[in-house]
Each structure stands twice: as C-alpha cells, then as structure tokens.
C-alpha cells in the first residue's frame, strides 16, 4: 500500500460510529479517505473531556504506534489535531475486537480453530514487541482486532512500557505498577500484581496471553465475578484459571454464579484439545522463568497446527465484518457499530 494519508480533516468523511475505546475516553468511527477513496477507522478523543494524564498516554501511544511496523500490530497511518479533538487514523478492522465478536455471536467462547489462529498471530506480535524491549501489559480480547480478510492485530499500546533504563540500557526487570491499569487487572500476572522488589519482565505478557486464551475459550475473562482481592490471592497462590469444558466443568447445583442455562449446557458438553489445555497451563506458570518465550510458544503443537489466517472469516461465522456502510442486518435486527 503506497497510499499516503494526509492530515487534512476535510479529506476524511465520517461514515458511522463503530464504538467506544475500552476506557470510554474516545470514539471510533469508520470514515472514507476522499482522495484515495479508501475506508479507514478514525479514533477521536475530545481534548476537553480527557485528563492531562490521558492526553499524555494517548500521545505516547500514537508515537509508539508510528514507530512500530509488524503485520500483527495495529499501525497508526497518521494522526492530527482538529479543533478540540485528537484524531488517529488506522486501518479499518472489519470484525472489530475479539471481545465484540464474542459479545455479539459467541457468548460461550470462540471455536477452537479460530482461537488457535488468533493466538498464533498475537504471540507473533508479542515476540516482535519484546524484541523491541516493549512490554505490552494489556493483552486481552478487547485489544485484539480482526480485519475483514482475517488478519489479526494487537492494539492497546497505551498501557505498554519499555524494558529500558533512562540511559537506554536493557533492563532485566521493571517495577512500576501501571497507574491506569484498573480495567486490565484480571489479565495481569502475579509478579506484576505483587509489586515488590522482584519486579516483572516481558514474561508477564505471556501470562496475560494465557488468561486471554481462557477468555477467548470461555467467552468471559476468568475472575470476572470474584472480588478483585480474591483474584489477587488466587494468582499469588499459583491457582491459575482454566478452560471450561466437560473435563473441568464442576457440576454443582448451587454454583450460582453462571446463571445462563444455555451457557452451562454449551460448556459442559464441549471438549477442548489437550494441546489447548497444556498451552494455557504453561503460559500461566506462577514462576515467570518457567514460562516459555513467545518464539518458543510458536512451536507449541496447538499453535503449530493453527489454520491460516485466511480461514478465519469462515471460522468466525455467523459474525460478518462491516465493510463501509456501518449498518448490518443480522437475523432481522440492525446492529449499529
């Protein structure tokens, strides 16, 4: 692609609202770039409504996105300030985030082949970030976007940090507890949460990757229904979340926390492969040193056997991507993205 996206606000014609960013400080629109007649996504932040800290985070995120170049990391095509809004232009990701897909079509989790395909792309992206001394710190389904042709990209770099000292030396560990990490707590690794002098390394992303594996499979993130402090003690004891299928589902009449019967039936009848179970388990080792590195995980049988990303659209049916109209008819109801 050699289209150059300019910074003239008038050259982007907004088509429709796609949704809000995770922290609800910005809105995402689909828009047409008039001079090239291509469709892009615009992330808009109203400077008057966001705090100074948020502004700094958004600025850092855009700068970082402009520096990175990897097929599985969402690029920032250009960014500009128009009136009171910051606008970041990114490619349009037709399927939206994995979280969106699950919310709309797969409340009990995605099919296993689709998960394998998504996870392989994400671990490739993490390997790339780690090689640039970047820790992502917010690997979760809502930060995984899928394009119309099935390409999977990682976003959410707002929460990332560098594994470098101020003098540019490569650090073994960092210690800072991310101040804005509240929405990501359930995905974070025990060594990041424990906040002691041991610190944490890029391996904390591998743990979050495992938690996200469970999230994609179960349709909901582990610990979503428990008190935050209980999530902490569970992780500190080394009790790792699990994929829920017929081998791990606990039949208990008074286990009232999942009330949807359809969900119960779906999870108690299915069975995930042994490879999938083992992948999640090895990623969520309590000790960071025992967790494999991203490039080692690529040769894990579960990810090795993953289908090609071109197969993803068919695996994600009945979910269908938006192309440019922004309004879709699904089973008789209109969904406004």
């Amino acid at each position: 692609m050699s289209i150059s996206y300019d910074t003239r606000p008038s050259n982007y014609q907004i088509c429709s609202l796609l949704g809000e960013c995770t922290t609800k400080i910005g809105a995402v629109y689909s828009a047409r770039h008039l001079s090239s007649n291509t469709v892009v996504a615009l992330k808009k932040y109203n400077l008057e409504k966001i705090t100074r800290e948020d502004t700094a985070l958004i600025q850092e995120e855009i700068i970082l996105m402009r520096q990175l170049c990897h097929p599985n990391v969402l690029p920032c095509l250009t960014a500009f300030v128009s009136g009171h809004t910051i606008v970041a232009v990114t490619p349009l990701m037709g399927y939206g985030s994995c979280h969106d897909i699950m919310m709309r079509h797969f409340s009990a989790g995605l099919p296993e082949p689709a998960i394998a395909c998504i996870l392989r792309a994400v671990i490739t992206a993490l390997g790339y970030l780690h090689s640039k001394a970047i820790i992502h710190r917010a690997v979760r389904a809502s930060h995984i976007l899928i394009s119309t042709d099935g390409n999977v990209v990682l976003t959410g770099l707002r929460y990332s940090c560098r594994l470098l000292s101020e003098g540019g030396r490569w650090l073994r560990k960092v210690h800072m507890f991310p101040p804005s990490t509240l929405p990501n707590l359930n995905w974070l690794s025990p060594e990041l949460l424990q906040q002691n002098l041991e610190g944490y390394s890029e391996k904390c992303d591998v743990y979050s990757f495992g938690v996200m594996g469970c999230e994609l499979a179960n349709g909901i993130v582990p610990f979503w229904d428990t008190p935050t402090t209980f999530m902490l003690t569970e992780k500190m004891r080394g009790a790792s979340p699990q994929l829920i299928d017929c081998t791990t589902f606990v039949h208990s009449a008074n286990q009232g926390y999942i009330t949807e019967d359809d969900y119960m039936r779906a999870v108690s009848e299915r069975k995930f492969s042994e490879n999938f179970h083992s992948l999640c388990e090895t990623c969520m080792e309590r000790e960071a040193v025992k967790r494999p590195r991203p490039h080692q995980l690529l040769s894990h049988p579960f990810l090795k056997g993953a289908p090609h990303s071109s197969a993803l659209p068919s695996l994600l049916l009945p979910a269908i991507p938006i192309v440019d109209s922004g309004v879709l008819e699904v089973q008789g109801t209109f969904y406004y993205y």
Binding site: D225, T226, P227, T228, T229, F230, E234, G238, A239, S240, Q242, V250, S252, N254, Q255, Y257, S278, E281
Partner: peptide
C-alpha cells in the same frame, strides 16, 4: 504438571467495598 485445584466460589467472602 501440578494440578491446581480451583477453589469453590461459594467459600469466597465479599469485601464490603468490593464491587462485584
């Protein structure tokens, strides 16, 4: 592999100020 047994969610007490 060491098996980590999931604790029953029933035995979890809620902290008064924790939002479920």
């Amino acid at each position: 592999r060491s098996w980590k047994r999931p604790t029953s969610c029933l035995s979890v007490k809620n902290l008064p100020s924790c939002r479920p």
